[in-house]
């Protein structure tokens, strides 16, 4: 039976499985340490489209189609899709989903959107509201730079705390039918704002939210960090990771042995000059589907806490001198031994 845990968590008694995951990324991501793991590496930054925004839509579309194929279903089998991206008003998702012809909920959770999408999709399946439900997100370096920072040809120096927006998309199909990875619970994140205003240090803006969600998850499920093989954050980067460790230590938790960060996994800063790590809602989605999910299915990791993190700011809030609040949405994914 499904059960509410604490104030922010849900334990799924009903069985929710991730029956497929697919990822499509850009060239730089393909050259990174996880390069061989991705389903597709698109070398053309425009992906054959005319604009960066359309390119992002295209990547998202390919990821969605691949996830549908891998699940062995048709797109019409999907009851609904939870999708989001980083563009204003989530247009990358809108133009992609217009082609897919499937009922849709559009989401915005900044870089945490994959956590949000997986949580809602899991609730939909566990509640019996959909036999097949998809979680889908994307981001694109160029469209994000254009949206949030400078035109690409503008000369500027990036601080070492800056992250590199991942060009890529990840999609998961969730269903009640058995597979190697089961979502057993979620913890909905609260918005946490420590008053930081530096949008070029997003790791520091999001780390307090990650800390909050991790602590809440551990308390709600009465677990210790050791109960997870891995605790995987979305895109805190190297700076955010250090801060997360420090903040958790104050709460009496040490997760240094379990912790991985998708942003730090996807790029090799020493070679790729990305600084703190990758970011964007395509980052956690692509790393989860290409790297984390296969390890859970194979049983290398038995139980994983996956929590994409988001920095909730806009161009306007930045211009008006507002702080950058953070959020982290956690999903518990467990290995399921195959019967035969």
């Amino acid at each position: 039976m499904n059960e509410r845990k604490g104030h922010q968590s849900i334990s799924f008694g009903e069985e929710v499985y991730i029956i497929s995951g697919a990822s499509v990324v850009g060239k730089k991501e393909g050259e990174g340490p996880l390069g061989p793991c991705f389903d597709e590496v698109e070398k053309d930054p425009l992906a054959g489209a005319k604009t960066w925004e359309q390119a992002e839509s295209t990547l998202q579309h390919r990821a969605a189609v691949r996830a549908i194929e891998k699940a062995g279903i048709k797109n019409t089998d999907l009851r609904m899709i939870f999708a989001g991206d980083l563009l204003a008003q989530c247009t990358a998702s809108a133009y992609n989903l217009a082609q897919l012809d499937v009922p849709v909920y559009g989401l915005f959770g900044a870089c945490s959107t994959m956590g949000e999408a997986l949580s809602l999709a899991a609730m939909a399946v566990a509640g019996g509201f959909g036999e097949y439900v998809m979680a889908l997100t994307s981001s694109h370096f160029a469209s994000a730079e254009k949206e949030f920072r400078f035109p690409l040809a503008y000369g500027s120096q990036r601080p070492l705390s800056a992250s590199w927006t991942v060009t890529g998309s990840g999609a998961c199909v969730l269903a009640g039918e058995k597979s190697g990875a089961r979502i057993t619970g979620i913890t909905t994140g609260k918005i946490v704002d420590f008053g930081l205003k530096d949008s070029l240090n997003m790791g520091a803006c999001m780390a307090p939210a990650a800390c909050d969600t991790i602590c809440t998850n551990l308390q709600d499920f009465s677990r210790q960090p050791e109960d997870y093989d891995k605790i995987i954050t979305g895109d805190l980067g190297s700076v955010g990771q250090q801060i997360l460790f420090d903040l958790l230590e104050k709460q009496g938790y040490d997760i240094q042995r379990q912790h991985l960060d998708c942003g730090m996994l996807i790029f090799d800063d020493a070679v790729q000059d990305t600084h703190a790590g990758g970011s964007g809602c395509g980052c956690s989605a692509a790393v989860f589907t290409a790297y984390v999910l296969p390890k859970i299915v194979s049983g290398e990791w038995k139980r994983v806490l996956f929590l994409p993190t988001g920095a909730l700011m806009s161009k306007v809030s930045f211009a008006e001198g507002q702080t950058v609040p953070g959020i982290a949405q956690a999903v518990v994914v467990e290995h399921v031994p195959q019967e035969n």
Binding site: P159, L160, S161, F194, G195, I243
Partner: peptide
């Protein structure tokens, strides 16, 4: 505001710079 300042100061300390 005080905790915000304190956090900012701490972040500055742990953030590497050129």
């Amino acid at each position: 505001e005080q905790t915000a300042k304190k956090y900012e100061k701490y972040v500055k300390k742990v953030t590497p710079t050129h």
